[in-house]
Simulated assay, not measured.
Amino acid sequence: MAGSGSGGSEGVAGGKSRFDDIYDRPDPRAYFARLAPLDYEIPHHAQPVLRRTATERTALDDGLPGRPVVLDLCCSYGINAALLNHEVTLAEMYDRYTSRTARSMSTAELTFWDREFYAARRRADAVPVIGLDVSAPAVHYALAAGLLDAAFHDDLEQAPPGPRLTGALADVGLITLTGGGSYVTARTFTALLDRVRRPVWVSAFVLRTVSYRPIERTLAAHGLRTTVDASRTYPQRLFTDERERQYAIEAVRSLGGDPTGREEAGRFHSVCYESRPGPPA
């Protein structure tokens, strides 16, 4: 589970470039500076989908007190929470964090600047969001900037959730994911779903280079039915080089997809999997 799902710096995982170094910084400036040239855009495409889904889930009377909470998995610096709950676009965030003003600030100054910025743009229909990511610096910044109501850096691929996260999971009604499908497995979803208490929905944007079937099976075992419109894809980012492009083309084909006009044209593409309580199709 690394960041908001784009991957790490100089290394390569299964042919996909990694950007691990941009997730261990104390603030998001390196994240936006590194991903801007690659036109990393999946949070932009997810924004209207997640807003709609969060509204629908919040309106659902599940018979339990309080409001259901959104858990953003692989949340990094709280990008999805910013876009979900505030009048801001991803393009504005790129401009903000790569600006001369932002570059001149200390992390403490940037945090204060962000708290004021997001507080002034908080939507009336904002929902509680907690974030989970293995990068402690990233989630701590998102919490300090006022984007998250709670932040956790448990690595559920390696160990079960700690007491704090376990307690927080009781209120989760929606799990979101926009790119971390390359890094989390059914192990993480099992750890989460074994501990939730509300009916949980899942909205996951997953690269076409990755099989979601093991996670679908885990969701089904917990009473969730998953649907997907495989014909509707969402561009994620440009490839870093030709090697990565070839990897993606081959990976999509190996999973039965057609890279024509998508990966062959130079970008990773994702599809959106929606899971709701219900019997299998």
Score class of each variant (00 low, 15 high):
residue 278 G to T: 04
residue 95 D to K: 06
residue 62 D to H: 10
residue 271 V to A: 08
residue 8 G to E: 12
residue 198 R to L: 00
residue 12 V to H: 02
residue 143 L to I: 08
residue 140 H to W: 05
residue 112 F to L: 15
residue 41 E to M: 13
residue 97 Y to A: 06
residue 16 K to H: 14
residue 66 G to N: 14
residue 69 V to T: 14
residue 272 C to N: 03
residue 278 G to S: 02
residue 187 R to S: 08
residue 269 H to G: 02
residue 18 R to D: 10
residue 77 Y to T: 08
residue 52 R to G: 03
residue 21 D to Y: 11
residue 41 E to V: 15
residue 36 A to M: 04
residue 27 D to W: 01
residue 143 L to T: 14
residue 29 R to Q: 06
residue 69 V to E: 07
residue 47 Q to C: 01
residue 242 E to H: 14
residue 68 P to T: 02
residue 201 W to Q: 00
residue 203 S to D: 14
residue 124 A to I: 14
residue 244 E to Y: 09
residue 156 L to F: 11
residue 80 N to Q: 01
residue 13 A to K: 13
residue 253 R to S: 01
residue 92 E to D: 11
residue 1 M to S: 08
residue 265 A to P: 14
residue 135 S to V: 09
residue 53 T to R: 03
residue 40 Y to V: 03
residue 24 D to C: 06
residue 256 G to Y: 04
residue 239 F to L: 10
residue 264 E to M: 15
residue 241 D to C: 09
residue 202 V to N: 01
residue 134 V to G: 10
residue 113 W to D: 15
residue 145 A to S: 15
residue 259 P to T: 10
residue 252 V to E: 11
residue 57 R to V: 05
residue 158 Q to W: 13
residue 210 V to G: 02
residue 218 T to N: 02
residue 168 A to N: 04
residue 274 E to C: 13
residue 90 L to V: 10
residue 182 S to V: 09
residue 251 A to E: 00
residue 122 R to D: 09
residue 173 G to I: 00
residue 197 R to F: 07
residue 104 S to F: 06
residue 249 I to K: 07
residue 194 D to F: 07
residue 107 T to I: 11
residue 167 G to P: 10
residue 268 F to V: 00
residue 58 T to C: 14
residue 115 R to N: 11
residue 114 D to T: 03
residue 100 R to I: 13
residue 223 G to L: 09
residue 127 V to Q: 00
residue 64 L to Q: 12
residue 248 A to C: 05
residue 115 R to G: 10
residue 95 D to I: 08
residue 26 P to I: 10
residue 150 A to E: 08
residue 120 A to Y: 09
residue 206 V to G: 01
residue 129 V to F: 08
residue 172 V to P: 00
residue 261 G to M: 06
residue 149 D to W: 13
residue 120 A to T: 13
residue 69 V to P: 10
residue 106 S to V: 05
residue 215 I to F: 09
residue 121 R to L: 08
residue 105 M to C: 12
residue 44 H to N: 09
residue 220 A to H: 07
residue 85 N to K: 08
residue 146 G to H: 10
residue 29 R to W: 06
residue 80 N to C: 05
residue 253 R to T: 06
residue 252 V to R: 15
residue 279 P to T: 15
residue 79 I to H: 01
residue 12 V to I: 05
residue 80 N to K: 00
residue 244 E to H: 13
residue 68 P to C: 04
residue 186 A to Y: 05
residue 170 A to Y: 07
residue 59 A to P: 05
residue 60 L to V: 09
residue 8 G to P: 13
residue 195 R to P: 14
residue 58 T to W: 04
residue 83 L to Q: 00
residue 20 D to F: 11
residue 192 L to D: 03
residue 67 R to Q: 09
residue 233 T to R: 00
residue 58 T to S: 15
residue 104 S to Q: 03
residue 97 Y to D: 12
residue 18 R to P: 06
residue 202 V to W: 00
residue 8 G to K: 03
residue 188 T to N: 04
residue 225 R to S: 11
residue 89 T to F: 03
residue 89 T to K: 01
residue 15 G to I: 12
residue 148 L to Q: 00
residue 65 P to R: 07
residue 257 G to P: 05
residue 95 D to G: 11
residue 193 L to C: 07
residue 244 E to V: 13
residue 221 A to K: 10
residue 7 G to A: 08
residue 272 C to Y: 08
residue 144 A to F: 12
residue 67 R to C: 03
residue 275 S to P: 12
residue 110 L to Q: 07
residue 51 R to W: 09
residue 119 A to E: 12
residue 227 T to G: 11
residue 23 Y to K: 04
residue 31 Y to T: 12
residue 134 V to N: 08
